[in-house]
Design a protein around this nucleic acid. Structure first.
Lengths: 245, 245
DNA sequence: CGTTGGGTTGATCGACCTCAATAAAAGTGG
DNA sequence: CCACTTTTATTGAGGTCGATCAACCCAACG
């Protein structure tokens, strides 16, 4: 079900640990944890940060291993999933630029994180980061607010998984993703899909085939157009109706 | 689908706002947010707290209304759910003694909270509580750790909703609930079920009938015994096998 | 007692899964 | 750039798990 990818050694932009891309040039700063930070907070984070680039389908960290780092995604996209012993997979989220991995700061990873495309991340040692939070309450507050948002999204996803039909699931997924891309690249009708149909299925509790059929149906109904890199939303009103809360 | 209960006015133990049951006598303190707090933090919380008792099937707060308060459950149990416009319902969690409602501190309620049984809660004005968090970083840290735990549980629930069979869903539900009761009353094989079969179904993405059938099946297989107030787990190993991660 | 609101059980149905074939991309090496 | 393989996506045919529809049980309660 899963290809585990090849070698796992990430390409480090800065072998000595010093960032070659400074926070001050960071494209996703406005979206990320780092927005609205005090200068001293940003500086402290910059000191801890290690900028790393991962290739496509590399593993950032694995389920139930000791959690060494937390991450801020600065480019690319990542799938977060849990595996059952028999191979069934549930994707619990997709991380896009600006997203933070490791909100819960737990000692073991609750899920595996694999890049969907080449991705660059800002990596922080977990313990040092946790200590920094205790020293900078304002940073902790910002992180907590992000955690609250995540929790809310997780509850929305429960509704989708538990009580929506296949068509509604796919429609809500596309709308939700477009909304997230809109924050990042401002696009209002495009929703790039860096993940496979299998990934979408494992996110929505569906099979590949059902995802494909529902995408085809939405395209036939002129609600979307399927493009090589994702979809274009033709009839947001129709999709909204399918995914309304 | 839902009976909205009768009058909504809660019974206040302390009409003047002063707690008749002090934090120092609180039975669930060890389990709750209030554990491991500094004396000054506890005192500040006590000042904000209003102890309130709700009857069975009363509403603590409703989805998408302005969030005025946050709550610490001290006795009884509460269902947390989201409704779709057409009446479909997803229960996103059950709150038991020691649980905190309002972790995300958002301005609008993300779900409705209704008591399953008579319940007593410790109620705090949301804004004042939020301000307190900014003044007491240690309290904020504690809250954030609880939020991280909640987030992790929510992701576990996604696996259950998305990738498990009906029998596995019910088995995981019973095991998860028993583990939570164990923290509260130390019972190791009993799992009281204050919620209806309908509630369990709406939590697991199943119908009442399917929940009932799976409970019967587990009982026939001698994995559980169904009692008037819940279940007794006869074969935890079997249930564990059905719910293993 | 009659009524009412769970809870259980049975019969049937259908949404989505499974299995299988094909098509379309995306690599890969010559 | 073109064969060739491999992976991913689509489409079809048929099966199944859980939903739906319906009957019945039973305890609580006026």
């Amino acid at each position: 079900m899963l290809d585990s990818g090849s070698a796992d050694a990430p390409l480090t932009l800065c072998p000595n640990g010093k960032a070659s891309i400074e926070c001050s040039h960071c494209k996703v700063r406005a979206l990320s944890l780092c927005s609205a930070l005090e200068p001293d907070e940003l500086e402290a984070m910059d000191k801890l940060a290690r900028h790393v680039v991962f290739e496509k389908h590399q593993t950032l960290f694995s389920q139930s291993e000791a959690a060494e780092s937390v991450y801020n995604i600065t480019a690319g996209s990542v799938r977060l999933f849990k595996l059952l012993p028999d191979g069934r997979r549930q994707i619990v989220g997709f991380a896009l630029p600006g997203d933070f991995l490791g909100l819960s700061l737990s000692e073991r990873n609750a899920f595996t994180a694999e890049t969907l495309s080449a991705a660059s991340v800002c990596q922080f040692p977990r313990v040092a980061f946790s200590d920094l939070l205790d020293a900078k309450p304002h940073l902790l507050r910002r992180l907590h607010d992000m955690a609250g948002h995540e929790l809310s999204l997780a509850q929305d996803q429960m509704v989708i998984l538990g009580r929506r039909t296949a068509e509604e699931k796919v429609a809500s997924f596309l709308m939700g993703l477009r909304k997230r891309w809109a924050r990042i690249d401002g696009s209002t009708v495009r929703a790039p899909l860096p993940m496979s149909r299998q990934d979408i299925g494992d996110y929505l509790g569906l099979t590949v085939e059902t995802v494909s059929r529902m995408m085809t149906k939405l395209a036939r109904d002129k609600a979307i157009v399927i493009t090589p890199d994702g979809v274009r939303l033709l009839d947001p009103a129709r999709l909204e109706a399918l995914s309304e809360t």
